[in-house]
Design a protein around this nucleic acid. Structure first.
Length: 879
RNA sequence: GGGCGGUUAGCUCAGCGGUAGAGCAUCGGUCUUACAAACCGGGGGUCACAGGUUCGAAUCCCGUACCGCCCACCA
């Protein structure tokens, strides 16, 4: 046990502890204790640490450390996600720099390149997590594309296929022409686009009439196979069943009636393009319309449109179609129009709805079960509002999930086709077709959506499909901590898969946190260039401070603005902890130092009774805050207790004994007590600030090898002490008031005062017992106490908590100033008293409000009246 | 088109039925033997607006305005 260095330098203490902890095995679940499990949201291999990670890792680590200290067998399981498209695109970009295309390499070689890239530069986040202090069990590190998880994916796929929930079919899907793959609805969020609504005349065959359609996508008209109106729309009823000539193509298409048509929108007539619009696709099925594919996978017009348009990009085709229609006088009108269009969330490309052969998971039955599990509370969202409802709404309206992707990086779909086009889906690679026995098989080229493997994460990481000990022990997990942006992508799907394959929910709590924004509340993005690197912050403020600041900002699932002042404040707090600890340690002395375990020596002194009660209350509040995932409250309570109560008052009040030259029994006891309070505080702080607490704790009397496995403090009802808290409040108010007089009256800090106090018996006893403390902390030389103060010349007067105060001022008193001060004081009290009086005069208040509220008001009112009397007298004496 | 959230001190935010708080900023003072990244003291808000419920509303209910988010096949 050595003393602490003069300056708090986070760097020097944060460097060593992590490796010590990791090597100690404390990050692995202990053999005993009720299991407590958190599965990390596996960061993408392509990513690096951002503020969102720092925030959620802080939360997960705080929970893990806290539960571990409570004796639970904690498993915080780390891992990474293979990040399908993101990783593939990234490696393709690297290849492009060498002038190599994916196709040049071929599938196998390309996959190897991605693995190689992962070896060399992936896993950055995992390394950065060490800086965070994340107490994850590295021995259980998982990767979504590793062989063990691949086996789980395959098992899940095969079972779902066998049950008929997975099937292959030609449906309209969201297609990204840039990445040339299908994507799910979730990956194609709508964005507002300023465009036009083009009104186009389609001539009706055999008449002079034409029917005018309104569309935002004129280029797809080349693939129209019908025109639709509402069945009850009288304007067009005579045309239902008629044939129109599709301009620019000369094709004949029918006019059909369908209820999906909105009469009020546009002209009330819709062009129907089943191959390129989801709604039209459905309508096409209802009316048996042919699908004419006019846009290819690359987003260019196909041969089906004729030579004038073939090969044009979608946008170019649109321009030419509009131009041609105009030339033929078929363009009736062009309106400015803003509407929503799907964009690929990875690359921003405008989605092309396309019909293609894909694999789908019918999630409806799984969703029903997952819905029920939230409704009956087996899994609960924190905060409950609004996420429960958002989850439920989505689950109720869930659509089939397109799980196939036209990529190379991912879990290849375990389906094989024979020459007769039979499908064989198998756990092991088949040698012959399950239907016809053919030995000519080729495997499906597509891979699975990355989220398919992520959906299995809470149990695939524990050894499923084998019945492992880990699986039995750690599933279901306890808390899932994640941002709201992936509730549908991930949380909902884990719920479905967990219930499907494990028969139990994957976690009992889903904690949804907000987004860390920049200092002005703007969302961080690389584009805007306002991202903040957590590592830089760790360097500047220390990891403990950044963690503490983040925890302090995390309120519900509200977004938070990251201001440097918050980090500075947290760093100052860490510095405060450091310096207070320095004081305690440098004064420990031999006797107190020899104690193995810190213990509380009973004491009748007010300050001791009080700090013990405050500590107890702090333990209680912090524990409850953590139980309810209110990290900001835990941080705030700890900050206030440590800084205000412990440092500003307890240490100051304890100084005479703790820093005494002579080591009496009383002094030793005082040192033990202060060490006890500090040591307990450190254990309370450890989940949020692991490094500094460990560093200091090691230099205090302690039991055990590390604070991370020391018991988390427990509150006890016997330590509650309302009387001590009440008396201390009076003492603090008194001392503060004297300081206030000093300051307001410009009394130099050096000159010491004589103080006259007037107080009733009970309070007088309190003052006498603590006279020395008052003298020291208010810099008073002498105190004279009586039951009532008489008037005196040249004295600053005040009254607080029923105690009259008089501070004689040497020589001249600035009467004007004093009167000003007292008048202000008087006004304040009057205002408060008036408010109370009006309440107390109100009969219904007295009758209906709870008795204690009324009593409290009465008491305070009486006190105010008394104080005002005294002030009035003083004011009068000033003339 | 639906749904949700926000609007509190100069800034960022807590509080969410008992009469307004924090951090930072600001003003004044301080070499008080742990800490100037500190200490001591002060100032600052008709809690967006308009109604209602209640003895009592920043807090609950109903509107309005502005900001933001999510969902959605009016092409």
């Amino acid at each position: 046990m050595t003393e602490l260095s003069k300056a708090y330098e986070p760097h020097s203490i944060e460097q060593t502890w992590y490796e010590t902890w990791a090597a100690s095995g404390y990050f692995q679940p202990s053999g005993e204790g009720e299991p407590y499990t958190i599965a990390i949201p596996p960061p993408n291999i392509t990513g690096s640490l951002h503020m969102g990670h720092a925030l959620q890792h802080t939360m997960m680590d705080a929970l893990s450390r806290w539960r571990r200290m409570q004796g639970r067998s904690v498993l915080w399981l780390p891992g990474e996600d293979h990040a399908g498209i993101a990783a593939q695109v990234l490696v393709e970009r690297h290849l492009a720099q060498e002038g190599v295309k994916r196709a040049d390499l071929g599938r196998e070689a390309f996959e190897q390149r991605v693995w190689q890239w992962r070896e060399e530069s992936g896993g950055m986040i995992l390394r950065q997590m060490r800086r965070e202090g994340a107490s994850v069990d590295w021995s259980r590190l998982r990767f979504t594309l590793a062989p063990d998880l691949a086996r789980a994916v395959r098992e899940a796929f095969v079972r779902l296929y066998e049950e008929g929930l997975i099937s292959r079919g030609a449906y309209i899907v969201n297609w990204c022409p840039l990445d040339q793959t299908s994507i799910s609805d979730l990956e194609a969020p709508k964005k507002e686009v300023q465009s036009h609504l083009w009104h186009i005349a389609y001539p009706v065959k055999g008449t002079d009439e034409s029917i005018v359609v309104a569309t935002t996508r004129p280029e797809t008209m080349l693939g129209d196979t019908a025109v639709a109106v509402h069945p009850e729309d009288e304007r067009y009823s005579h045309l239902i069943g008629a044939t129109v000539e599709l301009p620019l193509t000369g094709r004949d298409i029918p006019v059909i009636a369908d209820e999906a048509v909105e009469r009020e929108f546009g002209t009330g007539v819709v062009k129907v393009t089943p191959a390129h619009d989801p709604a039209d696709f459905q309508m096409g099925l209802r009316h048996n319309l042919p699908q004419v594919v006019v846009i290819g996978p690359d987003g260019r017009m196909t041969a089906a449109v004729g030579t004038r348009y073939e090969g044009l990009d979608r946008a170019e085709a649109r321009a030419r179609v509009v131009e041609d229609l105009k030339a033929q006088n078929l363009l009736v009108k062009t309106e400015e129009y803003t509407h929503s269009v799907g964009h690929h969330d990875r690359c921003g490309t405008v989605i092309e709805p396309m019909v293609s052969l894909q694999w789908f998971l019918n999630v409806r039955p799984l969703a029903d079960v997952a819905l029920e599990a939230v409704r009956d509370g087996r899994t609960r969202f924190v905060p409950v509002v609004p996420w429960t409802k958002i989850y439920e709404d989505w689950m109720e309206n869930i659509q089939p999930w397109c799980i196939s992707r036209q990529l190379w990086w991912g879990h290849r779909i375990p389906a094989w086709y024979c020459e007769n086009n039979h499908i064989t889906v198998s756990r092991t690679d088949p040698t012959e077709c399950a239907t016809c026995g053919s030995g000519v098989l080729r495997q499906e080229e597509d891979v699975l959506d990355t989220w398919f493997s992520s959906a299995l994460w809470p149990f695939s990481t524990l050894g499923w499909p084998d019945d492992t000990e880990d699986l039995r022990r750690f599933y279901p997990t306890n808390a899932m901590i994640t941002g709201y942006e992936i509730i549908f992508f991930w949380v909902a799907r884990m719920m479905m898969m967990g219930l499907k394959f494990m028969g139990e929910v994957p976690f009992d709590t889903v904690l949804i946190h907000g987004i860390v924004r920049d200092a002005h509340g703007e969302k961080m993005s690389k584009m805007k260039g306002n991202t903040i690197d957590p590592i830089t912050l760790f360097d500047r403020f220390g990891t403990d401070a950044v963690r503490f600041a983040l925890a302090g900002m995390a309120v519900g699932s509200n977004d938070m603005a990251l201001q440097e002042s918050k980090m500075e404040s947290a760093r100052n707090f860490a510095n405060k902890i450091w310096n207070a600890s320095r004081f305690v340690i440098m004064n420990l002395g031999e006797a107190a130092r020899e104690r193995r375990a810190p213990a509380w020596a009973p004491s009748d002194a007010l300050a001791d009774r009080w700090i013990l009660a405050e500590l107890n209350s702090t333990i209680e509040q912090v524990t409850r805050a953590l139980e309810e995932y209110r990290f900001h409250e835990a941080a705030q309570v700890l900050y206030h207790f440590f800084w205000d109560d412990f440092c500003d008052w307890y240490i100051e009040l304890s100084k005479p004994l703790v820093a005494a030259r002579e080591t009496t029994e009383e002094v030793v006891a005082a040192r033990e007590r202060i060490a006890y309070v500090l040591e307990t505080s450190l254990r309370l702080l450890h989940p949020l600030m692991p490094f500094i607490t460990e560093e200091i704790w090691q230099r205090l009397p302690h039991e055990g090898e590390s604070i991370m496995i020391a018991p988390f403090p427990e509150a006890s009802p016997e330590r509650e002490d309302a009387k001590a808290r009440d008396e201390m409040q009076t003492l603090i108010a008194l001392i503060t008031k004297i300081r206030n007089i000093r300051s307001e009256m410009n009394i130099p800090a050096r000159s010491s005062l004589k103080l006259f106090l007037g107080a009733p018996d009970r309070t007088a006893a309190l003052i006498r017992e603590n006279a020395d403390q008052i003298k020291r902390l208010a810099r008073v030389e002498e105190i004279e106490i009586s039951d009532k103060l008489s008037q005196m010349d040249a004295a600053a007067r005040d009254v607080v908590g029923g105690i009259e105060i008089a501070v004689p001022l040497e020589g001249l008193i600035d009467i004007t100033k004093e009167r000003e001060r007292l008048t202000k004081e008087m006004a304040r009290k009057e205002a408060e008293a008036r408010g109370l009086a009006s309440r107390l005069e109100n009969l219904s208040f007295v009758e209906r409000a709870p008795r204690e509220v009324v009593e409290q008001a009465r008491g305070r009112h009486a006190e105010l009246i008394e104080e005002m009397e005294k002030l009035k007298a003083t004011l009068a004496s000033l003339g």
